[in-house]
Write a protein that binds this DNA or RNA. Structure first.
Lengths: 349, 349
DNA sequence: TGCATTGTTGACACCGGTATCATTCAGCCT
DNA sequence: AGGCTGAATGATACCGGTGTCAACAATGCA
């Protein structure tokens, strides 16, 4: 109470951060006026504003987002829900999100859910509801779980899903045509003259894997005299190794292998090397994702590039627009393009 | 107000989530008693507790972490501050953290700061202070910035840093002996008979890079008749390509190259392949980090394994113990071990 | 029976902000 | 001069929980 309107250094004896009240006292105004300054309300006298801003700077006051959240019923927190394990993909997405949230004054809170469907829903809802995030970005595979959209809707949290296919229930889904991309891969390999082709699938319960496969197979089916061998996989390196070994151990092994993601494609390269097969001279390999890994392996993988950063940024912008009541920008449906690199070439002989 | 003590479905007309008050009304008790149940206070009659729990379940009530945060002056939020770009490393660390926070009832909020020192500090402090996290985990390279510890200390946020070297100012630093690890790499290569050795450094302003180099060089210096060539690098793939080209273009190129991280080592593999050098027959390559990448490239990289998951988990446990006033477990200083794989072999001829 | 003790519960202030509404004070018009 | 208008500001009730402390009933003991 002493020196009420003399901006001063923070009282060293005081525990914790300065509050709006300290600022008000230091500037000799009411907390409401300080609040106006914080919220850039125009109805504050210029001199008063200056005095308050000086006090804020002197006290190093930073408003508590938490108190503000309680009062405004807005947390300025965006939640990211995922239950995948692909490090590179998750990282690209996270960076894409942060590039937008940081610019718009939000923070990102990352939550990973258990893998199983029902549990995952319960966990996601509990998270959304307890942490009172303003909005949610949901990644595959959990974005594809039946009932998730409805469950999130029930707790009134705006959510944007990223998915390979349009999803029922979600108002905002950023999807891409992975089926067309699968077809692109097939055309690329057929165009190079390959007639014995192998496919290492992703997990059958993921829409992305099913779509890639469907597009790929449909295109292959159109080409006469092409033999196709496929093996199951689950997007892991180990599955890629097993799949490649199975395909290449056949009596008439394929001259080209499409692996449903880059990680498994990298595994194919490893198996090929172990068997003394030159890539691409004797075996062509295609991956999917266009992740950093595709460029780091030798030879660099021909892969379908998915613009994760742009996808994530678009999802975030859409979400924030919804949160803030503006008209959300139209949903983004990125084109997936095949980027030919060193791992594919003309079919041998 | 109707049917005050009959647990019922949430009123569909009501906006937002049910509050503790709704639960209290439904159970016919005061909010304070509901709060006791929520906090598992033992001083609640068993029957009352049951009644309240039933009401909670019926209303699908979930307490707002935000309101709780305000009241308890605890946010149950752990902040992760980073400004690095190594996707694989960040991901492993993040997963390690989440494995602990999830179990202890905390959530993770991820913040990335600008790269530059002073700005980074300001940004980190603003984040810590505004978001009122309970604690902070800080990763390199920003963890090594001078003055950061003091700045965080000033806003009274407990922080744990991960670093290659002990850091002044930080009460909690999880460090590892990267110098010894660098020496280990040198011994490995010398033991294989290599006498012409190349080194691709990490960024000179990062302690990790300096330490690795120092340990490596010291050990090399002890061995008679060994020639060493080094080039600068910055942990990126492009730098690895450039470095490898520089080293291998020399009149008497090295028979072994130590790259200061796996990403650059992967680049060395690519350059070797382009020049027709067999690895490890003609060139041995060693990386650092033991990341997934090391296992995915062909041949698999001999690398120094850094147990990121364990490091992150230990940091998190330490931090939470400090937050909760317990005695924090002793700081963890992981042993770094060289994991020989396919990319190193006896020196040619 | 009287009284201290223990176990349960509720009233109320508080955390640090925002929102609603009232109040004050100039300046302007008639 | 009196009344009106609008800009600037403050008093006070929230937001949804927890902490403190008092009230109260049931129990144990003398």
């Amino acid at each position: 109470m002493t020196a009420a309107n003399v901006p001063s250094q923070p009282d060293p004896a005081r525990q914790g951060e300065p509050t709006i009240e300290d600022v008000a006292a230091a500037a000799g105004v009411s907390i409401r006026t300080v609040s106006r300054v914080l919220n850039k309300s125009p109805k504050v006298n210029a001199q008063t504003r200056e005095r308050i801003e000086a006090a804020i700077a002197a006290l190093r006051f930073r408003p508590s987002l938490r108190a503000r959240a309680l009062a405004m019923r807005r947390s300025f927190l965006i939640g990211l829900i995922h239950n995948d394990r692909n490090a590179l993909v998750l990282d690209s997405i996270q960076r894409g999100i942060v590039s937008v949230t940081a610019a718009q004054g939000y923070e990102l809170i990352v939550h990973s859910t258990p893998p199983e469907g029902a549990e995952a829903i319960a966990d996601a809802v509990a998270f959304a509801s307890r942490s009172r995030v303003d909005g949610l970005i949901v990644l595959p595979p959990i974005s594809g779980v039946d009932g998730l959209a409805a469950a999130l809707d029930a707790v009134q949290v705006p959510a944007v899903a990223v998915s390979s296919v349009p999803l029922d229930g979600f108002a905002g889904v950023i999807s891409s045509d992975e089926r067309a991309a699968g077809a692109q891969v097939a055309r690329h390999l057929l165009g190079l003259g390959h007639r014995a082709i192998g496919l290492i699938n992703g997990p059958a319960d993921m829409a992305s894997a099913r779509e890639r496969r469907a597009g790929f197979l449909a295109e292959i089916a159109q080409a006469p005299g092409v033999t196709l061998a496929e093996t199951p996989g689950d997007y892991t390196f180990a599955a890629g190794i097993a799949g490649a070994q199975a395909l290449l151990a056949a009596p008439a092994p394929p001259t080209a292998i499409f692996a449903a993601n880059d990680i498994m494609a990298a595994a194919v390269l490893k198996v090929a090397a172990a068997r003394g097969l030159a890539v691409p001279a004797q075996l062509s390999v295609v991956g999917f994702d266009g992740s950093l890994l595709a460029q780091m392996v030798t030879p660099a993988l021909t892969s379908v590039v998915r613009p994760f950063g742009a996808i994530a940024a678009a999802a975030t912008r859409h979400l924030i627009a919804r949160i803030e009541g503006g008209t959300p920008p139209p949903l983004f449906h990125p084109e997936l393009t095949l980027a030919p690199a060193e791992s594919t070439g003309p079919a041998p002989r």
